[in-house]
């Protein structure tokens, strides 16, 4: 790797100060499992002047629950989330999603904040610079999207317009189903945004001098059932081809509420709101599930090679409802 200045931030304020001082030329390093790959492959046209270690900030890797819900420090590792008793009990969809990420070694250092902020996996975007030069595209400033005419088997089938790279984060899909908020701290103070508003087609809402500090999850109503299903060619390592996270309230076989989030089919996590509306108040059976699944993927406009993802997404919605 090409060299850079390195700082160990001791507080969030310090990290934000350094970010600000470098005016967009510094990056935060949490677990490092995504960032270091990016720096080694140099797929971005810019290279950071400084890397700021935020593992040295103490006290932001907590998992705390109260009557309102759950608060998770951005630096909580995926392994700790996957193992957390409280998360497994009441927010199991997140524990499952965190446990489905990458490999055990990665989960030991990768953080929830980092998993949300990781860069996309589009293989044009991530093409390694040292094997013939990086590929430029809109996400890097300007350039055509090669995926539209190229090999788009893993790209977006919904809402892809300017960029067809899909949101790679498994935990984001679970958090979308959990209606989580992301707490962001910058020089001017802190704010919270709903998870769905955190993501944008070309990235997220973080300004260059802001960082994610906390994930807030409202406590789901008692008696809900949660499900996370991720389709991949292999179980470990792979990023989702299609994923679904769901939280359902079912009383006497009748659906009283549902939140269903779909992953890896759009540039951001998306909620299948029409499918949710379709099932609320109805008995949970194969017919309801099939109707809802149809609605969930009705908006899909696949590219040349990824029509199968709509079929898979449909199947996952159905399974999540019936589970």
């Amino acid at each position: 790797m090409k060299s850079f200045k390195h700082f160990n931030a001791r507080t969030v304020a310090e990290a934000v100060q350094i970010l600000k001082a470098f005016e967009g030329h510094a990056v935060l390093n949490a677990g490092g499992t995504d960032l270091l790959g990016a720096l080694k492959d140099r797929f971005l046209p810019t290279y950071p002047e400084a890397v700021i270690n935020i593992k040295t900030i103490s006290g932001i890797d907590y998992v705390e629950e109260d009557a309102e819900g759950l608060r998770i420090g951005a630096m909580a590792t995926l392994a700790s989330i996957a193992r957390s008793t409280v998360i497994k009990e009441r927010y199991s969809v997140l524990a499952e999603a965190a446990g489905a990420v990458a490999t055990p070694q990665i989960r030991n250092v990768a953080t929830l904040g980092g998993n949300l902020c990781q860069d996309v996996r589009c293989w044009y975007y991530r093409y390694p610079h040292h094997v013939g030069g990086r590929i430029l595209c809109l996400r890097k400033g300007s350039g055509p999207c090669q995926a539209v005419t190229g090999d788009n088997r893993y790209h977006a089938i919904i809402e892809g317009k300017r960029c067809f790279a899909v949101c790679p984060s498994d935990t984001a899909i679970a958090l979308a189903a959990l209606d989580a908020h992301i707490r962001i701290t910058g020089p001017a103070g802190a704010r919270s945004v709903p998870i769905l508003d955190f993501f944008k087609t070309l990235g997220n809402v973080l300004k260059p001098d802001e960082m994610v500090t906390e994930i807030q999850i409202p406590r789901p109503a008692d008696g809900n059932r949660q499900r996370f299903i991720k389709l991949t060619l292999r179980k470990p390592i792979d990023f989702a081809v299609v994923s679904v996270a769901s939280i359902m309230m079912v009383e006497n076989g009748i659906c009283r509420g549902a939140r269903i989030a779909l992953g890896a089919i759009a540039p951001t996590p998306i909620r299948a709101t029409k499918a949710e509306q379709e099932i609320v108040g109805k008995p949970i059976d194969a017919q309801t599930a099939a109707a809802a699944a149809d609605v969930a993927v009705a908006a899909a406009k696949p590219l040349s090679m990824n029509g199968y993802k709509a079929v898979q997404a449909r199947a996952l919605v159905q399974r999540a409802i019936l589970a």
């Binding site: 293989w123 044009y124 093409y127 390694p128 094997v131 013939g132 590929i135 090669q146 005419t149 190229g150 090999d151």
Partner: peptide
């Protein structure tokens, strides 16, 4: 990728 001749996901 036939448009660019590059190996994807190498």
């Amino acid at each position: 990728d036939r448009a660019t001749g590059r190996v994807m996901g190498g």
